[in-house]
Design a binder for these strands. Structure first.
Length: 511
RNA sequence: GCCAGGGUAGCUCAGUGGCAGAGCAGAGGACUCAUAAGCCUUUGGUCGGCGGUUCGAAUCCGCCCCUUGGCACCA
């Protein structure tokens, strides 16, 4: 059976991990976890793009070999995955043999087909910046000082034929509505395709760049960027072998909006078409985090490094914030204040509810989940809220609407808190009557069940916390939604765990 | 300039033809199991502007304004 295959873009090894990297991984991870809980076999890939001029330069500045430099970067990015509880099944580095052999094979095949050809490329080159410049780099018609002397040079390079695929690609995008999410991004691609495509330069002479994969048909060149980086999506899953059929076509390429056009929506489909491989099913194009008020916080010395929040508040709180705050595809603001608001919800609504239940469970029921004896108005009302919440959240998850899904889950959690106020078990506990005793037991059982259900739904977003709640409720690990989202009395007789604070106040968290 | 996103309560945003919504912030209250948490009540909006379609428009159409981003062999 084909696996659900999902990728992130591979990160560029030149810079250290930041919020954007973290978000993309968490987003892909949450999607992966939803699929796994839906019973699918998932293959989740992320990785590192290690070739190129900037990496070469960074290594030179440090006086080390490029690969040694990349090793340290790979360690840093892998550590980020671990820190964020990202459940990737594989990690591809473009310096690995398994990747290079595929890149070389594809280049050679396309060269043999005549789809890659050699031609002269003419352009303005800045020796100081070591790069070709474009017209748009000009300021008021002149090259800015930072480029130093700019000369028009011509250079022989290899090109990949794009233009003959233009009509086909336009048609494909128009007829495959799910190809690009959100849909408005497809319009931008089509807009881009209104202009004729130029062929893509895919090589650099070794005098200018030697940290790359050598062209199999010309030792004087290395391949450049796209024919290296994009191919990771198929090299990592064994392109050319039987294993490949198990994963491809990829279900989701999760990428940032900056690399949709032209790389992923144009170059990549055409490359795949040229080598006779099926199209990806869908691109998930996310927006950016905007550091609102960044200047202000810098000047006041209160700069927040987003990833530090993971150390202070934990991976789950961080993941919850990312998923709750951002509408996938749109941009979002990031600030400490916004984070604090979301954290308070976790602590006050969810964490505190756990505290209430555990405390009363131990105090009134000897640490055991009692039976539900009655089902009256308050119970029916909460159950009805659950019946509306569960299926809706799954639907929202499937539609990548994580922000609204979380909103709905927390409306349900608020419903459980409201239920507790209505039944007020702490009052019932003072009564001697047998009826009140039954109500007391029912109310705690209902609260426990509400927590169980919420925790199952939350598992893809805050996996550790969900697991902790399950343990506190005396449950084995929940691996799937199937059979776990029905209101039941399955907790009856379970032993409750010792009281614990799931989301401590920040000042306590630091202590 | 062209293209796209956004413009709804003090803040962050849901809401695609049927009485303007949520959370947070603000105000008041009852309670006490709980992380000074939770619960109840409540203040607060010309839905960017103008025109049009419609019995009815935040929603559909046109024009305009503000804002963010993109505009190719750049990673």
């Amino acid at each position: 059976m084909k696996q659900f295959y999902i990728t992130t873009a591979i990160d560029y090894a030149n810079g250290m991990p930041h919020l954007g990297h973290a978000y993309e991984k968490v987003l892909a991870d949450v999607i992966s976890r939803v699929r796994r809980m839906r019973g699918e076999s998932v293959h989740f890939l992320t990785g590192l793009d290690e070739h190129g001029q900037k990496v070469q330069q960074s290594a030179e500045r440090k006086g080390i070999e490029p690969l040694v430099f990349c090793d340290t970067m790979a360690d840093a990015f892998k550590a980020l995955c671990v820190k964020l509880e990202v459940s990737n099944d594989d990690y591809i580095r473009t310096t690995e043999v398994r990747h290079k052999t595929v890149v070389e094979k594809i280049l050679q095949d396309l060269y043999d087909q005549g789809v890659i050809y050699k031609a002269k490329y003419k352009g303005f080159y800045s020796a100081r910046a070591e790069q070709f410049l474009q017209e748009k780099d000009k300021v008021e018609g002149a090259w800015p000082e930072i480029y130093g002397e700019v000369t028009e040079i011509s250079e022989e390079n290899y090109f990949f034929k794009l233009s003959e695929h233009q009509d086909w690609l336009i048609d494909y995008i128009k007829t495959h509505e799910d190809f690009i999410f959100p849909k408005f991004r497809a319009k931008q691609v089509l807009e881009f395709l209104k202009e004729p495509l130029n062929d893509l330069c895919i090589s650099r002479p070794k005098e200018r760049l030697n940290w790359g994969i050598e062209l199999p048909f010309d030792v004087n060149y290395v391949t450049y960027v796209w024919f290296d980086a994009l191919i990771n999506y198929i090299s990592a899953v064994g392109y050319g072998s039987e294993r490949f059929e198990n994963c491809w076509p990829v279900d989701y390429h999760v990428i940032g909006k900056d690399i949709l056009v032209p790389a992923h929506a144009i170059y990549w489909p055409i490359m795949l078409k040229a080598i006779g491989v099926e199209m990806p099913k869908s691109f998930v194009v996310h927006g950016w985090w905007l550091a609102a008020g960044a200047k202000m916080s810098k000047s006041t010395g209160n700069t927040v490094e987003p990833l530090d929040l993971v150390d202070t508040f934990g991976a789950d709180a961080f993941r919850y914030f990312l998923m709750r705050e951002m509408n996938v595809g749109q941009d979002s603001d990031f600030s400490q204040e916004l984070f604090d608001v979301r954290y308070n919800v976790l602590a006050n609504d969810l964490g505190n509810l756990v505290s209430r239940l555990l405390n009363m469970g131990h105090r009134y029921c000897e640490g055991t989940v009692p039976a539900m004896h009655v089902e009256e108005g308050p119970e029916k009302e909460l159950k009805a809220l659950w019946d509306a919440t569960g299926p809706k959240v799954l639907e929202l998850y499937d539609g990548l609407q994580f922000h609204t899904a979380l909103e709905d889950i927390f409306k349900f959690i608020a419903g459980v808190n409201r239920y507790a106020e209505v039944r007020a078990p702490w009052k019932l506990a003072k009564s001697e009557s047998a009826e009140d005793r039954k109500l007391l037991e029912t109310s705690l059982a209902v609260m426990a069940e509400g927590l169980r259900l919420a925790s199952v739904l939350l598992a893809p977003v805050i996996p550790s916390t969900s697991r902790r709640i399950e343990v506190l409720l005396g449950l084995p690990e929940v691996m799937a939604f199937e059979g776990q989202l029905d209101w039941s009395d399955c907790l009856k007789g379970n032993t409750l765990g010792e009281k614990v604070i799931l989301f401590p106040r920040p000042e306590l968290a630091k202590a």
